[in-house]
Amino acid sequence: MRDRQVARNARRAREFEAFVAGAAGRLLHAATLLTAEAPGGNPRARRLLTQALAHTYARWDRLRGEDPYECARQHLAGRFARTTWHRYGAFGRARPDPRSPLADLGPQERLILVLRLYEGVAEQQTAALLGLPTERVHTICDRATATLLHPVRPAAPRAMGTKVAPS
């Protein structure tokens, strides 16, 4: 009996290690995009990843045909949303690293954009995960994409003594 349990635990550990070897890099990149940290200095993203992997490992035997990557991604996204809500107010703005490609977006926009475009999660699934209407997810994703594709540039300083022509 004891030998069977030891063998089962060893198999579980090997399976989970194989999962982590294949999925951790992508999940860490997604977490880094969410937190808008620099890729080399991303303690919040690493903490999110660690929590998501710990949650997935705790559920490993109960997944029963569920995709462990989906489980980890859902936990990561949900944890990011809850942490951002509690720490910074209703999807308030943390100070993103200016080197992050998503630094100009708010947390909710980053979350939806990462789920939709980087992770390829369907609009309906994203809406269900976040508790938002599908139309709202669509609008936020469109707005975030437009912000990334057409960033607002600061106005060029005018030279001293030049006059602006009346409109």
Rank of each mutant, 00 (worst) to 15 (best):
T126R: 00
R87C: 04
A103Y: 07
D61F: 05
T147Y: 04
A24L: 08
V137K: 01
W85G: 02
L148N: 02
A38F: 04
C71K: 12
A7I: 05
A159D: 14
Q51H: 12
R73W: 13
A54I: 02
I140D: 00
G120P: 05
H138R: 13
G41P: 11
P101K: 04
L113G: 10
V121L: 11
S100T: 01
A156I: 06
A155E: 13
E109Q: 09
G78L: 09
G120N: 04
Q108N: 03
P96T: 01
G25A: 07
G120S: 04
A54K: 07
I112R: 00
A128R: 14
V152Y: 00
L27P: 01
L27Y: 00
T83S: 15
L76R: 08
P133T: 07
E66M: 13
Y118Q: 02
D142Q: 09
Y57R: 15
R44K: 02
A77Q: 10
L48E: 00
L149E: 08
G65K: 06
L132T: 02
E15T: 09
A45E: 02
L149S: 06
P101E: 10
A7R: 13
R2V: 14
F19S: 10
D104Y: 08
G161M: 06
P98T: 05
L130Y: 10
A36L: 03
R2T: 15
L76G: 07
W60V: 10
L105M: 06
D67W: 05
A128I: 04
R95T: 09
I140R: 00
R12V: 02
Q108P: 02
Q124P: 14
Q124C: 13
L34M: 02
A18D: 15
A165K: 11
R82Y: 11
Q108H: 02
T139H: 04
A128S: 12
R93H: 11
F19T: 10
R116S: 08
G106N: 14
R26V: 09
R64Q: 15
A90N: 15
G106S: 15
P39Q: 01
Q5M: 13
C71S: 13
S100V: 00
F80V: 00
R14H: 08
A10W: 06
L102W: 01
S167D: 12
L148W: 00
P157N: 04
T134Q: 15
F91S: 11
R64P: 13
A155S: 12
R82I: 09
A7T: 06
L148Y: 00
R73F: 15
W85P: 01
R12G: 03
R93Y: 08
P98I: 03
M1H: 15
P107F: 11
A122P: 10
A58E: 14
A45F: 01
A146Q: 10
K163N: 11
I140T: 08
G89K: 05
A146E: 09
D104H: 14
V137H: 01
R4A: 13
R44Q: 01
G40F: 10
Y57T: 05
L148C: 05
D104V: 15
A38Q: 11
A127Q: 03
W60M: 09
V114K: 00
R87V: 07
G89D: 07
L117E: 15
C71W: 03
T83R: 11
C141V: 00
R59H: 13
P101H: 07
G25H: 06
V114N: 00
M160A: 15
L28W: 06
A13H: 13
A155M: 12
Q108D: 06
H29F: 14
F19W: 12
